[in-house]
Each structure stands twice: as C-alpha cells, then as structure tokens.
C-alpha cells in the first residue's frame, strides 16, 4: 500500500517533469534547425539563428529597451514597496488593514483589467504611451510583491536593533539606513529579481501601454504572427538561459546574506 502510493507519486512527478521540460527542449532544439520553418524532421543543423540573435540590431535594441524598463520599474517598486512595508510594519492604527488591502490589490487584479484601466489613466494624465507609461504600469503591479517580502523580513527583525541604534545617537532615518536596510538586504535582493522577471516577462501591460517601440515579449508576439521562424526559438532560448542564471544567483545570494544576519 505504502510502496503503491510511492510508485504513483513518483510516476506523476516524472509525468510532470516531462510535461514541463519537453516543450522547452523542443524549443531549444528547433533553434538549431537550418530551415525557415519549424517542425520535424530536422535535416540540416545550424548555429545561424543563435549567432543571428546577437547580430540583429532590432532584437538587441528591443532587449535593451525591455531591460531598461525592468530596471527602472524594479527600482521604483523597491522604493515604494519598502516605504509602505516600513510604514505598515511596526505601527498599529485604525485602517491599517484597509491600507494593506489596497496595497495588495494590484497583485490580484486580472492583468487585462489592470492594463486597460492603466491605459485609460495614463491617457487621462496625458502621458504618451511608451516607456514611462510601461514603467508606471509595471511598478504598480510589482509594489505589492516587494511590500509582502519586505514586511515578512521586517517582522523578524528584533525591535531592539532599531532601539539600540537610536540609543547610540541615530535619528530615525539614520537608524533605518544603517541598521534596518542592511537587515532587509536578502529580502530586497529576492524582491528585486522577482520584479525584474515579472517586468521582463510581462506582455499584457506592455502591449496596452507601449508606443511604437515594442518590448521583447511584444516583439516575439509580432514575429509569431508572421510565421514560426527558428529565430524566435533562438531568442526565447537566450532569454530562458539569462533568466535562469539571474534566478539562481538571487537564490544563492539571498541564502548567504540571510545566514550572515541570522545572529
């Protein structure tokens, strides 16, 4: 009975792994096909799609554009999210739950709804569709994640740390900068990477808020409409590798930094 359920569990697990990785493997493999269309069989192999990605000025430009949007929206999300977390964390006041709920809302509103409403709002503010609008949209979406991660970390900081800093002559701002902020470091690293990935990956908001210049997901979508070329596979593979490296690095540096401040 016990071994029966064990076999069942491991079978379903492997089924899940196959389901997860076979499409990815197919995508990577098709990037090596020497033909303008994807699909089996692969008669000739080539590296030209991959080398092409790094020589295609348009793709590189769009990549840089997406990266700039991800970096700026992450920066703003970190600042605003940390600010709200620090405000909500230590104090209790009437309506705290309401502020908390409102701050969480952007994370749960369906992407399409949020994208449409942001588009209307941006128009209302007379901001041109484009980078500023997309950064604004991504920031609004990412703030709740930063806030939740930072609040969780903040709740483990002993109250005496800040008090000791104040006792030794620090005003509230100095105590935050020199004692609380270093303590939050692992949470901030994790939140930053998560925000980067969310922003880089976002299609709906970027599509609705963008101008003529596409972000990477929007570009890939546009390319798909004119046929499944192996170049798309190559672009996607490069993005996959970069994001995986970023995720693993964040995981590792969060662990070491958390261990250092565990005392």
């Amino acid at each position: 009975m016990r071994s029966g359920s064990g076999v069942f569990l491991s079978l379903t697990y492997w089924a899940f792994v196959v389901y997860l990785f076979v499409p990815l493997a197919l995508m990577v493999t098709m990037g090596f096909k020497d033909s303008a269309f994807i699909g089996f069989p692969i008669q000739n192999w080539t590296m030209r799609w991959y080398t092409g990605v790094f020589q295609d000025g348009e793709v590189l430009g769009v990549f840089a554009y997406s990266l700039a949007i991800a970096l700026s929206s992450t920066f703003f999300s970190l600042v605003i999210g940390t600010w709200i977390a620090s405000f909500l964390g230590p104090t209790t006041f009437r309506g705290k739950l309401l502020v908390f709920g409102l701050a969480c809302l952007p994370a749960v509103v369906p992407g399409i709804i949020s994208a449409i409403s942001l588009r209307i709002f941006v128009q209302f503010l007379a901001i041109e569709p484009g980078m500023a609008a997309i950064v604004l949209g991504h920031t609004v979406h990412n703030v709740p994640f930063v806030m939740l991660v930072v609040m969780a970390r903040l709740s483990t900081q002993p109250r005496s740390h800040v008090e000791a800093a104040r006792d030794l002559g620090a005003d509230a701002l100095t105590a935050f900068a020199r004692v609380t902020l270093p303590y939050l470091k692992p949470a901030l690293i994790g939140a930053a990477v998560f925000c980067m990935l969310l922003s880089f990956d976002d299609f709906v908001r970027s599509f609705f808020l963008g101008g003529y210049e596409p972000t990477l997901p929007v570009l890939i979508f546009a390319m798909l409409r004119s046929g499944m070329s192996p170049e798309i596979n190559a672009i996607a593979t490069v993005v996959l590798i970069l994001t995986a490296i970023l995720g693993l690095w964040a995981e590792k540096s969060m662990r070491t930094s958390e261990r250092k401040t565990a005392a």
Binding site: S160, H161, E163, A164, A165, D167, P182, K260, A263
Partner: peptide, 12 residues
Amino acid sequence: NMVFQDYALFPH
C-alpha cells in the same frame, strides 16, 4: 546608553 536584554548587536 543601554545594554539590551538580547544585546541587540548589529548582525551585519
């Protein structure tokens, strides 16, 4: 100045 019960040394 105060010596705290949990010492409150700055961990970093």
